[in-house]
Structures are given as C-alpha cells and as structure tokens.
C-alpha cells in the first residue's frame, strides 16, 4: 500500500490550534495487562485525526478511553492525565452524561436500536434536553440532514424500522443519532470496516463535512482512508504512540522506522 496512490480529499481544512483533547502520561490497564503505556498526545479542535496501527496496538483503547466506554470492562484502570474540553473525564464527581453528550461515538458495526428511524434519533435529545413535539421533529430532521440520510428516508422515517435500512444507511443513522445529541467531539471506531466501498465513500464524505464543525477522531485500519479523510494522523504500536503528525507529513516523511514500515505496508 503506497501512500502516494491515496488521493487526499481533505487537505487539512479548518483545523485550529486550540487543543480540545490532551493526554499526558496516559496509562490504561486491563487487570495486569498494560494496554496504553503512557500516551502523550493532543488533538486540536475541528478537523479529523486518524489513529492507525496494527491490531491490538491500543488505538481503539485510546479512543474508548476518551468517552469512558471502557468502564464496563472488568479490571479497567486508568492513570495519568487526560483533559477533554478543560475537564478530566476521570475526575471524581464528573458528570458522565455531560461527557457523553460532548463526546459522541460511532462503532465498528452499525448498531441501530430496533425502533423506527425517528425513535432511534429522538431518544438522545429527548433524554438530554427534554424536548418534545415540533422542536424534537426539527432536531431529528436536522440530524438526518447532517448525516446525509434525510432524502432517502424522509417519506417513512417515522414508521420504518432502523434495522430495515442497508448497512451504509444504518451507519449514517447511527451518525445522525449521535449528532442529535449535539456533541463537540465525534469518535469513530473503524466506522467503515463492515461496509462496501460505495457506502464507505459516502461515510468518508460525511466525515469530512462533519469536521467543519466537529472534532473527529477516527480509528481506521485502512491507511488510504486515513490519508483521504484526516488532517492529522497518529501511529500507535504496542500500546505506545509512535508518531503523530499532520497526515501528509506522516505518510510522506515518517520520522520513525516503525512508522515507515507500517505506512509502506510492510506489516500490519
């Protein structure tokens, strides 16, 4: 896989210098196993940051640590410093619901709830903001629009089950569901790995357009995808952050041997 072949559709647009996520010496343990071995990493506001690396390198763990999705895993522990929008999500007395409201997440496999498309999206804003009626309808429509799904479902989205959509549509529904809570940061854990190339293309376009207003962090196995959509890329290996740089730099001129080997497709 040669980086020069991946056509970049996202030349570092709209990135700012304002740091929105900052990790210092972040360590994560699952029982005795150390999954993240002291990560120092900052993510700036807006734009897309891609996390790449071989399987089990810790990139997903890092992503899921950001919105505390690992809490459920027995033996999970975190040390070090993590600041998201000025707050440590692991601090005592933190408002977990607010964290989840600010940091949305999309998963590897689309996971729509077995309800109507409308209900799938409405459940978040209804719980968080207590809105109902026409206000809610408007939010749902906006979220569907933002996820580029509105035109396809506008006729029967109040009746049709989310599960009856195609895989790509389901994933966009999940993105709409997340957007309806109005997050600042969007985490995506290999969002296209279960999708066909055409659906993947549409999601990638969506990611780019989202990055105008949200900070997107995406874990991907697909180096071309990272090149196409991201403004920054971070390479993880064995639970460590090997290298992080603007995407074009990292692919064109990796500073570390491991990075060079990985992006040139020698392993991974």
């Amino acid at each position: 896989m040669n980086h020069s072949q991946g056509a970049s559709i996202n030349p570092a647009v709209n990135t700012t210098d304002e740091v929105i996520v900052s990790a210092k010496g972040l360590r994560v343990y699952y029982g005795d196993k150390e999954a993240l071995k002291g990560i120092d990493f900052s993510i700036t506001k807006l734009g897309v940051t891609a996390l790449i690396g071989p399987s089990g390198c810790g990139k997903s763990t890092f992503l899921r640590t950001l919105n505390r999705m690992n809490d459920r895993i027995p033996g999970f522990r975190v040390t070090g410093n993590l600041i998201i929008e000025g707050e440590n999500p692991y601090a005592k007395g933190v408002d977990l619901l607010e964290l989840r409201r600010k940091v949305g997440m999309v998963f590897q496999k689309p996971n729509p709830f077995p309800k109507s498309i409308y209900e799938n999206i409405a459940v978040g804003p209804r719980a968080h903001y207590g809105i109902r009626g026409s206000k809610l309808d408007q939010v749902v429509e906006e979220a569907l629009n933002a996820a580029a799904l509105w035109d396809e479902v506008k006729d029967d989205y109040k009746r049709k089950s989310g599960l009856s959509l195609s895989g790509g549509q389901q994933q966009r529904l999940c993105i709409a569901r997340m957007l309806a809570v109005n997050p600042d940061i969007v985490l995506m854990d290999e969002p296209c790995s279960a999708l066909d190339p055409i659906s993947t293309g549409r999601i990638e376009e969506l990611i780019v357009s989202l990055s105008q207003t949200k900070t997107v962090v995406i874990v991907t196995h697909n180096l071309q995808q990272a090149e196409r959509v991201s403004s920054h890329t971070a390479f993880f290996m064995f639970g460590e952050l090997v290298e992080a740089a603007p995407t074009e730099e990292l692919f064109a001129n990796p500073q570390r041997d491991a990075t060079r080997d990985y992006v040139s497709g020698r392993f991974g």
């Binding site: 619901l97 496999k109 996971n111 709830f113 719980a127 968080h128």
Partner: peptide, 12 residues
C-alpha cells in the same frame, strides 16, 4: 453493541 450504543449516547 446496543448497550454500548445507549452508553455512548449518554443515556443513564
């Protein structure tokens, strides 16, 4: 994945 979905949406 549905439980994860609910958690990630910030549902209690």
């Amino acid at each position: 994945s549905l439980r994860d979905g609910g958690d990630a949406l910030g549902l209690t």
